[in-house]
């Protein structure tokens, strides 16, 4: 049936081509941002090793730590959702399974990101213990 359609008819309704490289670009942009953020995250985790609960909580109360942690988490989970979806697109060829997995990845990453953000905000406002 599509053989009888004109080229413009075939592409109509499939979205603008102008954002075709958006995912690719966002993957690179988030990767670049994650280089310093991951280094800071590793440093923070090393500094926390062996510390008791009160010290860990008091460090999380610092606005600088909170903001950097939120940036690392939000950008990290976004980068992760792009990467994991990419892996599924490459290896899962059953269309329904592919779409199901990609939806699960996107929703899962959003859920994890929100759980992390909620925890960081709660700690930052100091309502824990």
């Amino acid at each position: 049936m599509s053989a009888f359609k004109t080229p413009i008819g075939r592409v109509r309704g499939r979205g603008s081509a102008k954002d075709g490289t958006q995912t690719f670009w966002h993957q690179r942009l988030t990767a670049l941002a994650l280089v310093p953020l991951a280094v800071l995250f590793i440093g923070f985790m090393i500094a926390l090793t062996g510390d008791d609960y009160a010290t860990a909580v008091s460090m999380m109360r610092s606005p600088v730590v909170s903001v950097l942690m939120l940036m690392f988490l939000l950008i990290g989970f976004y980068h992760m959702s792009i990467g994991l979806a990419h892996v599924v697109e490459d290896y899962v060829h059953w269309e329904l399974g592919k779409i199901g997995l990609i939806v699960a990845i996107k929703l899962g990453c959003l859920g994890l990101a929100l759980a992390c953000v909620l925890s960081v905000i709660k700690l930052s406002f100091g309502s824990a213990a």
């Binding site: 609960y53 860990a56 909580v57 999380m60 990290g76 989970f77 992760m80 994890l112 759980a115 992390c116 909620l118 925890s119 960081v120 709660k122 700690l123 824990a128 213990a129």
Partner: peptide, 15 residues
Amino acid sequence: SLLLTGWLLALADGP
């Protein structure tokens, strides 16, 4: 990232 989420949730939940 599940472990990191668990760590943050535990930290926010209490001692």
